[in-house]
């Protein structure tokens, strides 16, 4: 049996031919926590997730899920997992209800048990009034909620969600987060990947920041922000690139932590207002606008990699 977490990974590598998608990562996931992989597209999150789902073979390294090796115990591990892929992979030949029923049958569950659970899960996913409809006409948010309901049919001990709210409108995202929170309160262990820093902050107890197949840091959202950022950030915008460059050259060497982006300058400070006034309205290169805000995981990622999460 495992000594540590529900999931233990050491020096985990995934290669596709020449391409190294996951380049030696170490982490553990503890029972009942919500664990996140935060990183831009192409960071290796999905490849890592597919190894955790015991569908994609490990190229190198050590991986145990429930203390079992996915290479030899894949079916036994998958029987205790819930998986929501980025592409919902719903069965469009079947109705909403039959998607749950047939998926439950893949797990070898008896029909009567599936029917009981399906009614509850459709309620949970707010899809009860759609139960006998086909899947295709459903909205993106409904499809994602159905994919989540379907993945809960076996009452999984670990629930894996790959980019759960990508492509959803804000309202659908909030409903989804609320549903995930209620699972979290029930004590389900959640593992999610996301390139949305707000999603990671909202949901994750602990996360790893991934870039280019590697983990660049690990901690709770608060710890990561405290470790890499100041409490506040000033976002200043300038009339021209030249003016912004001038301000950057003046601030460099003053010990102030700055990040110069294409469209704005970020200045990290514990007291944003004082920096904001320092940048000064009476200065010849005064910003056209300044905004003082709380530091976020986006800033952590920028500090760690020099890039924003959305670019690429």
């Amino acid at each position: 049996m495992a000594t540590g977490g529900l999931i233990e990974a050491r020096s985990l590598v995934k290669r596709f031919g020449e391409l190294t998608a996951v380049d030696g990562i170490d982490f553990e996931v503890q029972p009942a926590e919500t664990f996140g992989f935060l990183g831009p597209n192409g960071a290796g999150k999905t490849s890592a997730m597919r190894m955790l789902a015991a569908t994609s073979p490990v190229t190198e390294g050590y991986l145990r899920i429930f203390g079992q090796d996915p290479a030899t115990d894949g079916p036994a591990i998958r029987a205790r997992l819930g998986v929501v892929a980025q592409e919902d992979n719903l069965d469009t030949d079947l109705t909403v209800l039959d998607n749950l029923v047939i998926y439950g049958r893949y797990f070898g569950l008896p029909r009567r048990l599936i029917r009981e659970r399906a009614d509850r899960l459709l309620e949970f996913a707010r899809l009860t009034d759609r139960r006998d409809e086909k899947v295709d006409p459903l909205s993106g948010g409904m499809k994602r909620r159905l994919a989540i309901a379907r993945a809960l049919i076996n009452e999984p001990e670990i629930f894996l969600l790959d980019e759960p709210t990508t492509g959803l409108d804000p309202q659908a995202r909030h409903l989804l987060w609320e549903r995930l929170w209620s699972l979290k309160r029930e004590g389900v262990t959640l593992v999610i990947t996301t390139h949305y820093m707000d999603e990671a902050e909202q949901l994750c107890d602990r996360l790893v920041v991934m870039d280019d197949g590697r983990i660049v840091d690990e901690g709770s959202p608060r710890q990561l922000i405290e470790r890499h950022c100041t409490r506040e950030v000033v976002e200043a915008r300038y009339r021209s690139v030249a003016e912004q460059a001038l301000v950057v050259s003046r601030l460099e060497g003053t010990g102030v932590h700055i990040e110069s982006l294409a469209d704005r300058l970020l200045v990290y400070a514990d007291d944003g207002d004082s920096v904001s006034s320092l940048l000064g309205a009476h200065d010849p290169v005064a910003p056209t606008s300044t905004l003082v805000r709380r530091a976020t995981l986006e800033d952590v990622f920028l500090t760690l990699t020099g890039r924003t999460l959305e670019e690429i």
Partner: peptide, 14 residues
């Protein structure tokens, strides 16, 4: 086209 095989292999099915 529909991709349902990919959902099947997330269950105990191989």
């Amino acid at each position: 086209w529909l991709g349902f095989y990919h959902a099947m292999v997330t269950s105990p099915l191989r």
